[in-house]
Design a protein around this nucleic acid. Structure first.
Lengths: 126, 126
DNA sequence: CAAATAAACGCAACTAAGTTGCACTTACAA
DNA sequence: TTGTAAGTGCAACTTAGTTGCGTTTATTTG
């Protein structure tokens, strides 16, 4: 039977992401864990956590993938339509959980995923 | 005095982007121009065209930058808040020029750029 | 029209993100 | 306690994008 194991590295990385107010990249996680495991392993752990629905991916404005914890509402209804904010000064990527974007699309399009990212200056940097 | 020149490669690439209904990547432009110029030159031309306000960048869902022509409205009021649609089947990235997203942000944030991308199935692929 | 010159170019080399294959290790179920 | 599939480390690879530098060329100016 196909199962998913709990490992030290996986728990550590999940804890880091869940405990962070901003989304983290693989590089940031690697720096934070300091040789806990190989960088390839981090990528694989991130893939697994995403599959399990514990975290979700957010593409940063510079094209680098970042990872953020899923709120409880995520698990209930699997939707990630909230807006993300990328600060040009401190480079942080934040999930604005409460803020949703509305739009009216021609019916011919079938939407499966949404990625809304604003960039500018965050409250901490003004 | 600092000036910008018109070159064969630049005109060709601008024409390709302006004449396309979908946004194009450096790789796609290189394939379309077939040895017209070096890939580094394409990157530099894209940078210049962006600076001149003739094209604008759109980050695709896979983290690769794509380029689309600017409509006349772009030049008048420099805003690129329209939604982009990335088709999971044909991999095309389209500017939905008419469709704008609305959102309500906490006042503490200063927005300087917006990147709204939906992905799913486009009209041609349904 | 010719010469000067700064913009544009080609090439090689580099960085950074992410992926793959394979042998080795380990969590955990039986 | 042990078998085994999930997880890991390492090396090598791909792809996007950047940088430095010597050469070419579009355009300006005399």
């Amino acid at each position: 039977m196909k199962s998913i194991r709990n490992t030290v590295a996986k728990n550590e990385i999940h804890k880091l992401i869940a405990g962070s107010t901003v989304a983290l990249s693989q590089a940031e996680l690697q720096a934070a864990t300091k040789g806990l495991c190989d960088r390839v392993t981090i990528y694989r752990i991130l893939d697994r956590l995403t599959q399990e629905g514990l975290i979700h991916k957010v593409l940063n404005v510079d094209g680098v993938m970042k990872y953020a914890g899923c709120a409880d509402t995520c698990k209930a209804q699997h939707k990630h339509d909230h807006i993300h904010f990328s600060c040009q000064k401190c480079k942080s990527l934040t999930c604005l959980a409460g803020v949703e974007a509305s739009y009216r699309l021609p019916a011919a399009y079938t939407v499966m995923e949404a990625n809304f990212t604003l960039s500018g200056i965050c409250p901490n940097c003004t």
